[in-house]
Design a protein around this nucleic acid. Structure first.
Lengths: 297, 297
DNA sequence: ACATAACATACATAAAAAGTATGAAAGGAG
DNA sequence: CTCCTTTCATACTTTTTATGTATGTTATGT
């Protein structure tokens, strides 16, 4: 038995008449009679008790009628849900972000949620290498990561580059200016730097920049998580250098930030997702949101 | 979309391959590919992400797959339930009985329940006239009633006739014998008799019998409910005359019963159900049980 | 690079559903 | 009670849909 027959049966049971039901279904009466008969033959039972020209449901028919309503609405609702998911209006998105890029994601989601109230999120956090692997494993669909990347099997939407800033404990006095430091000022400052668990990343860029300025940085701590670093700064353990937006997202009390005068490096970040793979409408829209928000300003 | 397509989809999603799925479904591969394509066109979305020759479910496809399992099993279970109801192996039976015939019903149900453990019951109680109306209104399918009946639109299975017995308070001394009375003994005894709310019934039969013996009965109470009468007897209010089986089902302490010597009337009861109407298998079986239990002994 | 395996397409065939015409039986009006 | 209308059922035809066969195309692995 298929759903068409079940719908037919429901209408006949509602109308208690084949003729009326046929009209309601925009079809001729004989095929409807026939389909009901076929159902009865398939089930090997009577669904209707034919009393002259009146049709009354049998016990079995009554039960089927009750269940049919439920089954059919559940079915219809499923189709609606599936369509909505496909339209990106519903469902759970799986997104990754490095901590240092998190402000982009939180800003984008903040905008996105008003336009897509039925979308929920599953977030992954980790360094660029880790998130690349997550995408390859299909654990997440897209991620916002720090450059440089390892693999080239991704579509890449570059977000605008931003300066690095130095963050030091409030109590420290490391510069003659109020809001800027020169590399020379940092010669002996204990530095704690972001460092990926595996692969080359910002760490190497920053260290190289120091060397270009003729200074060997005093790196006292390497850590993959920006918020941990900032917390260490707040405790007075050392200073750190992070992208400006990272600081904006996780600025802590008892810390103070400085621009890096004469710095040639910029922090680069990007939205990445796998090439040649079907991307949900929801993800396509989120990427569009990120692009509109950060790339055309 | 119909259920056949949903089953196809489920199989393909399980096998992650059209070819294997087609084999499992005992069909050729092209029609299966085509049906999946039709589903996608109808929903206007992709259910599978075609990666070369690999098929992977999209988000929408995943949701449909999850829901499909539920929908299909619910559907199959519904069909099973409907079939069982039609077979009389499941469902709720609507049965009526006069109180005075209740022992037949309780005995029959006691036997029936072991053979039909999934059947439940909805009971109605009242006088014969009332139960006839209940059947006509489709509130119950069958009833066990006292004769005589009013209408002839019923199929009637007569149960064996049984003698009436006199029930009196234990303390009374109304007979010279231990377990029998003659009509003569009852000349002044206060009698409480079953009397239908409407229509002629046993009451008239019993009164006529008294008159045939030249005695005008001293009727002090008319009541439609046998158990109320018996309770009144136990309290010492009066004596009553009820069918033997009624007494068996509701015998109370502090009462004593006597055979009616010289009585020509018998209590008649019957199972009735509506003519020309579809009767559930369960009811057919219960009638058979009653027949086997009481008519062939 | 070639063989193999898998999905897609094109076309033919078979099955199923819907339509048309018509018959039978029930219910209502005169 | 008879006739007319209504309604369901049946017989047959047409249309639509589903399936099967043959074959092409593309990716994967040897």
């Amino acid at each position: 038995m298929d759903l068409k027959q079940l719908r037919y049966f429901r209408t006949v049971a509602e109308e208690k008449q084949v003729t009326k039901a046929a009209k309601k279904l925009h079809m001729a009466q004989p095929p409807l009679s026939q389909q009901i008969k076929l159902m009865e033959e398939e089930l090997n039972l009577k669904l209707f008790d034919r009393q002259g020209r009146k049709l009354e449901l049998t016990k079995a028919g009554e039960i089927l009628f009750e269940k049919a309503a439920r089954l059919l609405t559940e079915f219809d609702e499923t189709l609606i849900e599936v369509r909505e998911i496909s339209e990106g209006m519903r469902g759970k998105m799986h997104i990754g972000s490095t901590k240092s890029c998190f402000s982009y994601l939180s800003a984008a989601l903040n905008l996105f949620k008003t336009q897509h109230p039925n979308i929920t999120y599953q977030l992954r956090e980790g360094d660029t290498y880790f998130l690349e692997e997550c995408i390859k494993n299909r654990e997440i669909e897209l991620a916002i990561v720090r450059m440089p990347m390892h693999s080239d099997e991704f579509n890449v939407l570059k977000l605008p580059s931003e300066p690095y800033v130095l963050v030091a404990p409030e109590s420290w006095n490391i510069s003659s200016y109020d809001d800027a430091v020169e590399f020379e000022d940092l010669r002996d400052v204990p530095l704690m730097l972001l460092h990926r668990i595996s692969g080359r990343g910002q760490f190497e860029l920053i260290v190289d920049e120091f060397r270009d300025h003729g200074i060997e940085p005093n790196v006292t701590c390497e850590c993959p998580d920006a918020t941990m670093l900032l917390s260490l700064v707040a405790s007075g353990v050392g200073a750190t250098i992070v992208p400006e937006s990272t600081l904006k997202a996780f600025a802590l009390h008892h810390t103070k930030s400085y621009q890096l005068t004469g710095a040639n490096i910029k922090a680069e970040s990007a939205v990445i997702w796998q090439k040649e793979r079907y991307l949900t409408k929801a993800s396509q829209r989120l990427i569009k949101t990120l692009e509109d928000q950060f790339c055309y300003v």
